[in-house]
């Protein structure tokens, strides 16, 4: 199932998620995290997209996973954060 969301991060930038997920088990097949935010280092976003594959579309699981990826890869976001990213992804389900 393919879906897209546009979500303005509170006090942040405009996040646009392109999501391909399995409706039955609610796992992410593929995700593109796009928008006018900043992330350092930039290339870490592709890593994050890869690591989010097969993650369950559940608020807590997703948020924890994203926080871990941010920490492990030492990612600094400006105009985006883990909560905003989680919300943006879950809006794709609505």
């Amino acid at each position: 199932m393919k879906s897209k969301s546009t979500y303005k991060i509170p006090n942040g930038k405009l996040l646009k998620i392109f999501l391909d997920y399995n409706e039955k088990n609610q796992l992410i097949n593929n995700i593109k995290i796009t928008g006018d935010f900043f992330a350092y280092p930039e290339e870490a976003i592709e890593k994050m997209e890869n690591e989010l594959k097969n993650t369950k579309l559940d608020k807590n699981i997703l948020n924890e996973k994203i926080k871990n990826i941010i920490q492990e890869n030492d990612i600094e976001f400006i105009g985006l954060n883990s909560e905003g990213l989680t919300n943006g992804i879950l809006i794709c389900l609505k």
Partner: peptide, 9 residues
């Protein structure tokens, strides 16, 4: 466009 933006979007 910014590094993270979708060109066609």
């Amino acid at each position: 466009i910014g590094y993270f933006q979708s060109l066609e979007d």
